[in-house]
């Protein structure tokens, strides 16, 4: 039950000012050398004007590529452990797409089922998301095939949808209301704009529930081998993915002190599952490619009752060898058992 308002384009300047006055940093898509990435901004004018998506996902705001988990000092016969505290600055993520906003839910599912991950939580707690509906899409996009949409509200605290002269603002959560309260005069009564008419048209490409239902029965299908022959086994897809959560824990130390770091990892790397003995449960690239698909579309739904994919298409855009996830899922959905 969203509270709907109108927000003029000009009023964003005041909104940004109010957020910053409240001690929050604002991260938004910015352009640099033709690349769109998240950067800290002070004013709306610094936000990239016309972008489809950032290359990297917003996950690094809550789950950075390298993060210290603990440190220690070593003296003879003694080790002194030191807990690490995540640097969690109050942050507003402005202008991320609905697919990415939704992805925080998939990360949360892993980081907080059973054991709770304080590093992720500390950052997420201080994060508010002002999403921005998509008015265009490209061939990599497939949000509507995975239960999302170009104006989907899931994961946003406030969702903005561009309309003439400004935005339709849906205030969706307590965090959203808190932002509204910082500058309530800017949020004018809504006028009942049909946001679906404004939002990008993204055709559903495949029947995801049907695909999820058939995956367990097609584990040994040749389709994974065929698709993955050109995969070079790098981690680009996983690292740009807003929901890929797999990580490595690495030690960096000298004889007197050290620290333990969490680093992004990818199931596509052959080292990921390699045992010290040399045995590798996923020996070939096709098994690793299949794991990527199954983890997101079969294991996630079984385990967390949601998908591990939001259809943002970042992996497809980042892939050096054009592994197109939408296309490959569509192909898999069409395989007759």
């Amino acid at each position: 039950m969203a509270n709907t308002y109108q927000l003029s384009r000009e009023s964003l300047t005041s909104l940004f000012g109010a957020l910053r006055k409240d001690g929050r940093r604002i991260l938004a898509p910015v352009e640099s050398d033709g690349r769109i990435g998240l950067g800290e901004v002070e004013a709306p004018a610094q936000v990239a004007g016309d972008y489809l998506q950032t290359i990297m996902s917003a996950k690094e705001v809550a789950f950075p590529k390298v993060e210290r988990l603990l440190s220690y000092t070593i003296t003879p016969g003694q080790v002194d452990l030191k807990d690490a505290e995540p640097k969690a600055a109050p942050t507003v993520l402005f202008g991320v797409r609905p697919c990415e906003a939704k992805a925080f839910g998939a990360l949360d599912a892993v980081f907080n089922w059973d054991y709770r991950d304080k590093f992720f939580n500390a950052r997420l707690e201080k994060l508010a998301v002002i999403g921005l509906s998509c008015t265009k899409a490209d061939e990599a996009c497939f949000c509507t095939s995975v239960g999302g949409g170009p104006a989907d509200t899931a994961g946003s605290d406030i969702l903005l949808t561009p309309v003439a002269d400004g935005y339709l603002a849906e205030v969706l959560t307590e965090k959203g209301t808190a932002i509204l309260n910082l500058a309530s005069d800017l949020f004018k009564p809504g006028n009942g704009v049909d946001k679906v008419a404004v939002a990008a048209k993204v055709e559903a490409a495949f029947d995801q529930p049907a695909l999820t239902a058939k995956l367990p029965g097609m584990f040994d299908s040749e389709v994974w081998v065929d698709q993955s022959l050109r995969c070079i086994g790098c981690g680009a897809c996983a690292f740009v993915c807003p929901t890929c959560v797999c990580f490595d824990i690495q030690e960096e130390a000298d004889p007197k002190q050290g620290e333990r770091l969490r680093c992004w990892d990818s199931c596509g790397f052959h080292m990921f599952t390699l045992h010290a003995s040399g045995h590798n449960p996923r020996e070939v690239q096709s098994a690793r490619w299949r794991q990527r698909i199954y983890h997101k579309f079969s294991y996630y739904p079984q385990r967390y009752d949601q998908l591990g994919c939001v259809g943002c298409g970042k992996c497809t855009r980042a892939c050096p060898v054009d592994m197109n996830l939408k296309e490959h899922l569509t192909e898999a959905a069409g395989v007759t058992a």
């Binding site: 990297m56 590529k65 790098c234 981690g235 050096p320 060898v321």
Partner: peptide, 12 residues
Amino acid sequence: SRCMKCYACRNS
């Protein structure tokens, strides 16, 4: 500073 060690350069 943008590198994330995805090793796309190495693997390609």
